[in-house]
Simulated scan of single mutants.
Amino acid sequence: MKYLFVLVFATFAYGDDCIKVKAAFDIGSGTTKMKVGRVNTCLQKIEKILLEANEPVAYKEKLQNHPKNLLGEDIQQDGLNALLKLKKMAQAYSPVSYQAVATSAFRTADNGEVVAKKLAIDSGIDIDVISQKEEALLGFAAAVSKSNKEVSQVLVWDIGGGSMQMTSYNKLGKFDIYEGKIASASFKKLIIKNVQKHDPKEVKTPNPISKLDYQTSKNAAKAYAQSTVPKTIKEKIQSGAQVLGIGGVHYYSVRGQTKVESKYDHSTLESTISSKLAKHDADIGGDYASTDVSNLILVKSYMEALNIKEVEAFRINLADGVLLSGKSLIK
């Protein structure tokens, strides 16, 4: 299935046949997210989110530790269990469709497409493995629908378990996209392997992270950002574009740890990181303790490298984009 991305600015009359209840799933590299929404399909507008739920599924971590770069039977079963649990919750709202997109872990696994097809058959959910460009544009579509800024004055920053995207729309009618390869799971692995000199197959968490670990990993991430983020994205940031953070890393991990309503800056991140150093997973708590502190460091590193002064976190993931777009996403 291929997708066509459209920004809709026009308004027109519509009837009740435009209103549909749909279920959408974002099968990320570390979490499977679901949203059930009442959608105006004529205006491509989400009128109301009726249900939102998430289930942790460590696709990327399992993939990174598999000797043949495969999604093994154990993680496949975990993934199916998560989808079936979420779908059962959605059925109370009688959605007309169940659609999902699968991202980085499925793109990079040698059996990613095969596993996605098997999960689709076993769950009864329409699943597409999408490219990183499609992932970026889906997130952008969902985020700009929530922003009060001009579409050309927004930069959407999405960090997942396996990939990172920065997306902007220029006045020439084209998208500028950064397709980053470092994200939550891969940055955690970088700290464990390259900074702390442990074997990620044996050591599953970088915590406790020392001050030296923090500085070393931050310097590595800053250097990577400075060398890989394209000039057009850097210029968009320097022009004063509003930086919208979407996905679980920004909204749940960073916003949750900093305890802000929606916006965080350098000083907020620095003080939060300082309070988390030298703590074990049990002290940090939660299902994502092993990546929470490294997520803070990753975001802080990129903000410093690209001179991002402030990020506003939105409760948005790719499921919002799937609700908006249905079977017509991006080309």
Rank of each mutant, 00 (worst) to 15 (best):
V6P: 04
L7R: 11
L7H: 11
T11Q: 14
F12Q: 07
F12K: 08
Y14F: 15
D16W: 13
D16M: 11
D17G: 03
D17N: 12
C18M: 10
K20N: 11
K20E: 14
K22D: 01
D26Q: 10
I27D: 03
I27F: 06
V36T: 02
K45E: 13
E47R: 02
I49E: 01
I49C: 00
E52T: 10
Y59N: 03
E61L: 11
P67V: 02
K68S: 02
L71M: 03
D74S: 06
I75R: 13
Q76P: 00
Q76Y: 11
Q77D: 10
Q77I: 09
L86K: 13
A90H: 07
Y93Q: 10
P95C: 03
V96G: 14
S97Q: 09
S97N: 05
Y98F: 15
A100S: 07
T103D: 05
R107G: 00
T108H: 12
T108K: 15
N111R: 08
E113C: 13
V114H: 12
V115E: 01
K117V: 00
A120D: 01
D122N: 13
G124N: 05
K133Q: 14
E134K: 08
A143K: 12
K146G: 00
N148C: 06
K149Y: 15
S152G: 00
S152H: 09
L155C: 06
L155K: 03
I159K: 00
G160E: 03
G161K: 01
S163I: 07
M164S: 07
Q165T: 05
D176L: 12
D176Q: 12
S186V: 05
L190S: 06
L190P: 02
L190I: 03
I191E: 06
I192M: 05
N194T: 04
H198C: 08
P200G: 04
K201M: 03
D213N: 12
Y214P: 03
N219S: 13
N219R: 15
A223L: 12
A225W: 15
S227F: 13
K231E: 12
E235Q: 14
K236P: 00
Q238Y: 08
G245Y: 14
I246C: 07
S262V: 03
S262H: 11
D265I: 00
T272Y: 00
S274E: 11
K279Y: 04
K279L: 10
D281A: 09
S290Q: 11
D292E: 12
M303P: 01
I308N: 02
A313Q: 05
F314D: 00
F314A: 03
L318I: 04
V322Y: 00
L323G: 00
G326K: 07
G326E: 04
S328G: 09
L329F: 14
K331T: 09
K331R: 11
